[in-house]
Simulated assay, not measured.
Amino acid sequence: MINIRIAIVEDDSQCVKVFRELLDKYSQKKNYNFIVEWFKNGMDFISDYEPIYDIVFLDINMPHLDGIETAKMLREQDNNVALIFMTNLVQYAVKGYEFNALDFMVKPLKSFDLEMKLNKAIDFTMSNHDRSILLNMGDVLKKISVFDLLYIEVINHTLIYHTEKSVYKVYGQLKKIEEELVNLNFYRCNNSYLINLRHVMEIHGDYIVVGKDRVPLSRRKKKEFMIKLAEFMGQQL
Rank of each mutant, 00 (worst) to 15 (best):
Q235R: 01
V182H: 13
K120M: 14
M226C: 10
A7W: 07
K72P: 03
Y53A: 02
D130F: 02
D213H: 15
N119A: 07
L89I: 03
L109G: 09
L109F: 03
N79W: 10
M62P: 05
D130Y: 00
D24Y: 08
V90T: 07
S218K: 13
I55Y: 07
F124E: 00
N191W: 04
N80W: 10
G172S: 14
L174H: 05
N185T: 06
L134C: 10
N191C: 10
Q235D: 09
T163H: 08
L174M: 10
A230W: 02
Y168C: 06
K169R: 14
P63M: 10
L134Y: 14
F85T: 06
R198Q: 09
K72R: 14
F19G: 03
L229C: 08
N33I: 03
V167F: 15
D206N: 15
M43A: 11
N100H: 05
V209L: 11
E224Q: 02
I84P: 00
V182I: 08
L149H: 03
F19P: 01
H199Y: 06
M1A: 10
Q77S: 13
N33C: 10
K221V: 01
M126V: 00
K110N: 08
A101T: 02
V56H: 02
D48T: 10
E10Q: 09
L184F: 02
A82Y: 04
M105C: 06
V140T: 12
G205N: 15
I4D: 00
S47D: 14
Y171P: 04
S166K: 15
R219D: 13
A7T: 09
D213K: 15
L22N: 00
Q28A: 08
K95I: 14
F147R: 04
C189R: 02
H204V: 14
I55V: 13
Y151P: 02
L89Y: 04
H64Q: 11
P216C: 15
L22F: 01
L141W: 07
I4Y: 05
D48M: 13
S127I: 03
E179I: 04
K17D: 07
I46Y: 13
L65W: 15
E224W: 02
A101V: 05
N185Q: 11
F147C: 05
H162K: 12
L159V: 01
S145Y: 13
A230P: 01
G138M: 09
S145N: 14
F232L: 05
F45S: 01
N61W: 11
V18M: 07
Y92E: 11
F104V: 12
D12N: 13
N100F: 06
I6T: 11
L181K: 00
L89C: 05
R214F: 13
I227T: 07
S192D: 02
V209G: 08
V94S: 05
Y168A: 07
N80S: 12
S166D: 15
D44Y: 14
L22W: 02
K17Q: 06
D11R: 09
L197P: 00
E76S: 12
V140G: 08
Y187E: 12
Y207T: 12
M126D: 00
L149F: 04
V81A: 06
I160T: 05
L109T: 05
L65N: 13
E180V: 00
Y92V: 04
V209P: 07
R20I: 06
E179P: 06
D24C: 03
I144Q: 09
Q235C: 03
D113N: 03
R131K: 11
S47H: 14
I68D: 04
L135I: 04
F104H: 06
